[in-house]
Design a binder for these strands. Structure first.
Lengths: 350, 350
DNA sequence: CTGTTAGCGCTTTCAT
DNA sequence: ATGAAAGCGCTAACAG
């Protein structure tokens, strides 16, 4: 190995960036850089003796691989962008948490992107994150701009679409049947004997949160099939919150004092409603029954405890990540489509 | 432009990766690749005529820069890792949200990392994310392994430490004065006339959440200075939740039936307590006063509404991101240390 | 099992 | 204002 003479051409290094490179390790261990690379990435293809020497050198030098360089050379940077509509909605956070935990354990990092429910922003964001040569991508929903779908299909790497379920996805799909959820709660309300049932949600008018609208459609079909008035719909445009739940509750009560039950698009709204009922001294479910969707832990602590349709959000994230990892590791997942399911949790509010 | 003859050497391209490169754009526009690079990154250094031609080519070809290649060449990938202790704690999520929104607007992407409150994992995670040649880093807290601090200082790029405040930080610091928060609520409770005051929290015994412990210390000092029994402390090891709040509430009540006020380490616990009190038919604050910390919106909807110390969590994220951007854009921030402040929100629970 | 060679796609440096 | 050449740190491809 050549010993650099003093005055030798300085390597072009980045400002303040004097990190140890694979070459330094190779020199220290007396092997070629590629051997270090192999020892690190596919240890089984390097003899035990060399491997040990290399590990030693890595240790003493404190070598940390430059993933950018690796990514450029091999494409695939062990980065997984996760594109969600919003970071202020707890549901997505919990899914992301499941994804992150699973991926980080396997040595992948999550790159966060949010679209604010705007498919054009989604398309732009995708362009941008694909610039990182990610190993795979997790997207929210099955509805995208045509260009997004085209680009992703041509891309040829693992793509998981989460949250909802459909026959045709880009690559892999894990989610729940939203219409089924809506129908499930509606059926429960009917079984309980309620007939004047309203659905209350947010942003369902726009393309904004079409998944809530799907739940509403499921709800409506069940009521219609039962010959019950099914168009009792109250909605606000702002994002869901306890406050909006409270307002929706009061408005619906005012508009239809004969209401027997309220089916809320999610637990945040339903919680706001129960809390408002508490404050007004109204009895739930005697005066008005309240049902939700999600299964937030808060629901158990309310009085009365909230009846809701529980979906395993964290697990949905874990499942999505597992699917991705399976494909990444060459294990073709048996099911490129996972129905994560849901469960009706009947408590006292209905 | 040279027309490649059939049979020309195929470029080594990655599987399915047939993205448009800067060279394609250059050829299309009839300029050198470096000119395209300039037109994109420093438009003012390229003549209007060429710029237009290049923009045109970018448009028709649908060119999207490979940030990995750019990152390797220039170091700095427009990625900002954000390292937090946990993704299941809403506070961090809200801070991340603020960071993400601010950074995304400026063309940077957030890389998510969580340490589970383990400083060794933090050190390992840092090594890993530094491998992405990030443009800057946002870390939680001021306490790190010595190696972490050393590495980050030597690194020479913007680092923001968030959540708490201290005299000595690695580079920049934005957060709140935890002891001050604890003292603030303690003072309020004393002013209200309460004397038998307990502090209830989670994970304060370990290094796990030392920020909660700092709040406790602030609380204790105020009580001690007032000559009031200051060692009434109840704690659990599990992470905060409504359920743990409920348990803590019941246990404290059992252990010290003479308690007049409870100072909870956060609003989740305090909410669990109020909800438990509601269920038991206990009056708050007549039977027992309850104070929290955070300023979660839920607090307003409880009956009674929760008295709490509100901290602008989203804004803390925004501020951290702004500091980072300022340095990144060469504008040296006036204050490398921002006290984000807090506010006592007095409502009916005390 | 190990090494040599040639880039990945971009930006730096240095000419012009 | 524009371009040519070199190389960022790593790995794929192909020897041996």
């Amino acid at each position: 190995m050549a010993i650099d003479k003093a005055g030798v051409r300085e390597r072009r290094r980045h400002r303040g960036d004097n990190r140890v490179t694979i070459e330094d390790v190779a020199r220290q261990a007396g092997v070629a850089p590629i051997t270090v690379s192999r020892a690190l990435n596919t240890p089984e293809r390097v003899s035990a003796r060399l491997r040990e020497r290399i590990d030693q050198a890595v240790e003493t030098l404190g070598y940390v691989p430059n993933l950018i360089a690796g990514g450029l050379a091999s494409a695939g940077t062990r980065v997984i962008p996760v594109v969600v509509p919003s970071l202020s909605i707890l549901t997505f956070i919990e899914v992301i948490h499941g994804i992150q935990q699973t991926l980080e354990g396997a040595g992948y990092q999550v790159l966060l992107g949010s679209t604010d429910f705007d498919l054009d922003r989604e398309a732009a964001l995708l362009d941008s994150v694909l610039g990182y040569s990610p190993s795979g991508v997790i997207m929210t929903g099955l509805r995208h701009r045509e260009s997004t779908v085209r680009r992703l299909k041509a891309w040829g790497r693992p793509v998981v679409e989460i949250m909802e379920l459909g026959e045709s996805c880009i690559d892999m799909n894990v989610g729940i049947d939203n219409a089924g959820v809506g129908a499930c709660m509606a059926r429960h309300l009917l079984e309980r004997g309620y007939r004047r049932i309203a659905f209350l949600g947010t942003g369902m008018g726009m393309a904004r949160d079409y998944r809530a609208r799907e739940r509403y459609e499921g709800h409506r079909e069940v009521l219609a099939a039962a010959g019950v008035e099914s168009e009792l719909l109250f909605q606000h445009d702002e994002p869901s919150s306890y406050e909006v739940g409270r307002q929706l509750f009061l408005e619906a009560l005012e508009a239809r004092p004969d209401l027997e039950a309220m089916h809320f698009a999610n637990d945040n709204l339903a919680t706001g409603a129960i809390l408002a009922a508490n404050r007004r001294g109204m009895r739930v479910p005697e005066d008005i029954a309240i049902g939700g969707y999600l299964g937030l832990s808060l629901g158990e602590h309310l009085t009365p405890r909230l009846t809701t349709v529980t979906v395993p959000r964290f697990e949905m994230g874990v499942e999505a990540a597992k699917l991705l990892l399976a494909r990444l590791e060459g294990r073709l997942p048996a099911l490129p489509r996972v129905d994560i399911g849901y469960e009706l949790t009947v408590r006292e509010s209905t």
